[in-house]
Design a protein around this nucleic acid. Structure first.
Lengths: 198, 198, 198, 198
DNA sequence: AATGAATGAGACTTCATTCAT
DNA sequence: TATGAATGAAGTCTCATTCAT
């Protein structure tokens, strides 16, 4: 594919991200998307078979970016706690700085779009593959530092709060400054760490 | 309103809950809803101005039921921890036992339906009103037992994990038995409690 | 179905017959059909799942009418030749008097719509069922009067010419008056009859 | 036009014939045609003003080939009957051996593409020109051997049956072997020949 | 001359909402 | 009051045709 083509693909994807985030999949007509992307309606269909494929592709793209952002700068030689905090902070910053991506992902996961199909795939191979760059490495060496709990439970304890909070932040209910982020991360750490003498 | 009317309102609402949960708002035509509810399409419009109002009303109903279920049997004379565990368990059971309600709420919150409009309203007066039956009471006496953190942060630490986990459970990724629930609740408690000497 | 409904079904069918005959299936948009039938576009879809079902229904309807018209007044006690001529004349009159029906059928059979599916069904059970009211009766007693040939061949010899000619007549190339019809019918009879002493 | 151009014209035409025969005019996008012909879409438009012109041209080509094939080997010195049988056999073989051509012609004639415009032109100057190579010569000397009937009627009697039958053969309803062909041709001959003493 | 990406009119179909019965 | 047939705006997608390269 030529660079020009690639560029148009991306233009469309970007416009879609914004539009879908702002209006939702269903309330975003292809015509409007075409307009925002400054292309003809038909052109979208050169690059994506249909609306669904566009959404799937967008999801893949966004998810990829998220995964990359999350592990950025995490240093495996540091303490588990340090790494954990780093992850949480990365995640939070990425989502705060990319509200469109955040809203899109929220919709994607929670609308019965590919809800079962996608979540299942996603989370299933979380345990053993894809997203794992960080999850797996992190939880694998967990023996000592982290509670011996089923991975999904650790997962929930570790990431549930911050995701919950980011939603509130998006809605303007909290100011997610560094202090708060650290507080939450600390809380999460408390939730999963293996407290020796307690 | 006559009892007969009231009954029909409820019939419609029940059918809507099921349909919306199973298919999503957008994929659930009013005609199908009418069919499921065994009423004429036109009748729905006697009780609800339009589809949106129906959804809003349904949300209110479901939310109310959830609030009630959550505080059921919580005893203010018990220890904060006990009360907290009780809340979490109530919440989990309700959502596990009412998957339609759960799916509906997920959609409602995460689709840009009333996302801003609604969440804002909802969470804003959380702090000082509606939902508070349990939140407020609970956090107000928090001085000693619970970390001194902004309420939304506590909120996130307390409820984020279990909500996260319930989603996984719905998708069939985890078995949410009593043991797991307790584990999570304990984890959450660890996240928010004020550990005296640590 | 109420009489009013039935009436609208028929109104639509009639408009469709005219439109399809004049413009062809593909060149006849549903919107135009709706206009001609004086109904809303959406209404068509109350009665017919989609354009294809409409076409199929129309075909069934037209075919039925044709079958009925063909055997009208045919008297089994008359000579085979008389009956044959009667059939041909009925057929010719019906198609001449119903040019829309004729054009529609031509299209239906010869466009790769249900070409294989339909023709097969049609012609296959011609031999032994449906259309047979006349075909079967006619060819079954054929032993003496009619050549011993495979049925499809007799079929072709008997009806090929008149169908061919009707097309020319529709195009204005021949005037299909009684004389000509009789001439053709006679020719066909000559083609299939068993000439004793020749 | 250069030989190379001529070749490309023909390549396109061949691909079109196949595609139109298999899918029908309407279901055969220009893009797919280009692909099959191994040319760019734009190139098609260098040779043909638009889709319609392409179809018309194709029709002309196919018709020409058919005319040529039909008279091949017909010997004017033979008896009228022999010549007639020869014609029928030629026609049948050509169409049997060129199913794409056959399907294309069927569509072309029976869809309101150029139905009136084309058939009229075609058949009109049949009487006095174009196609006549065989028709005219054949029917002109007909005085004695053949019934005195309007040419279109003779036409119908002579060719109607075999065309009818070929359709059935294409649909797999009859096996068109030499025997059957001869039977039909004989039947047709019976239909048009002037039986002396009858 | 050849290409094929781009276009947008227009096709089919759905569905929230109305209104005559 | 209850109904559901009728409506048409709006959505998704296709495809003949053009035009910059």
């Amino acid at each position: 594919m030529s660079p020009a083509n690639k560029m148009k693909r991306i233009t469309i994807l970007k416009a879609a991200l914004k539009l879908f985030a702002e209006q939702g999949f269903h309330a975003a007509p292809m015509a409007q998307l075409a307009e925002q992307a400054n292309v003809g309606v038909g052109s979208i269909y050169r690059y994506y078979k249909d609306k669904e494929e566009l959404i799937e592709t967008l999801y893949e793209e966004v998810d990829e970016a998220l995964q990359v952002a999350i592990i950025e700068g995490v240093d495996p030689t540091q303490s588990t706690r340090k790494q954990f905090l780093h992850l949480i902070i990365n995640l939070t910053h990425f989502l705060k700085d990319h509200p469109h991506e955040f809203k899109f992902l929220e919709q994607y996961y929670h609308s019965p779009y590919g809800i079962d199909k996608k979540r299942e795939k996603l989370l299933l191979d979380n345990t053993a593959g894809r997203q794992s760059p960080f999850i797996k490495i992190f939880f694998n060496k967990s023996s000592k530092d982290i509670k011996r709990l089923p991975v999904p439970v650790l997962h929930a304890l570790a990431f549930g709060p911050i995701l919950f909070l980011i939603r509130d932040a998006m809605a303007g209910l909290v100011e997610l400054d560094e202090t708060v982020i650290i507080q939450v991360a600390d809380g999460c750490w408390d939730a999963i760490r293996n407290r020796a003498g307690s």
